[in-house]
Amino acid sequence: MTHGSTHATSMGVDNRKMAFWAFIGSECLLFGSLIATYLVYKGRSLVGPYPHEILNIPFTSFSTFDLLMSSLAMVLALAAVQRGDMKQGKLWLFVTALLGLIFLGGQFWEFSHFVHEGLGLTTNLFGSTFYVLTGTHGAHVTVGVIWLLTLWIQALRGKLGPQNALTVEITGLYWHFVDVVWIVIFTVVYLIQ
């Protein structure tokens, strides 16, 4: 992350940014396959608990709102870094990471609650597809949180400035993508039962 966009590129987009778009395209297929698997196995569990018995839509709506707000915080963080306002930048980077952590905490609570209710990874197809799909998403959020905290620590140490705006922008791309994926998962898994 030490070099900025110093290169003249054919498409006028920084290499790292373009690579990230390619990466996101690839990730779409990854989540697409997982969501397809979930949909193929929907309603094919041999034993309960079934989705409608266990999913807590109000709680997860809160988590979804939390993640949406984190995207907003990310936008603010990027804007602050771009205009060189590192005080605000630090703040919003931290808020984004914190909202991400809250989401993860919610997921942790949700998972342990489900396990308590009798839905384990191997209980039925719903359990397997649900945990693998949302777990993969959770892993992506975890990576994002670690990434954001890394940037935040860099910023605290004074090593992150407007010259790193592109790095923050790419982090934001990732974060927004993970957020959008969640909207899809929330719709497919929770809302359309």
Binding site: L29, L30, T37, L121, T122, L125
Partner: peptide, 26 residues
């Protein structure tokens, strides 16, 4: 990514006892 997902699901079947590809569990 598609084969990665397939392999991950297979890995869950083999290591953690899920039934993604096993008729016994649907």
């Amino acid at each position: 990514p598609v084969i990665t997902v397939a392999l991950v699901l297979l890995m869950f079947d083999r290591f953690f006892g899920t039934h993604f590809f096993l008729p016994a569990g649907g």
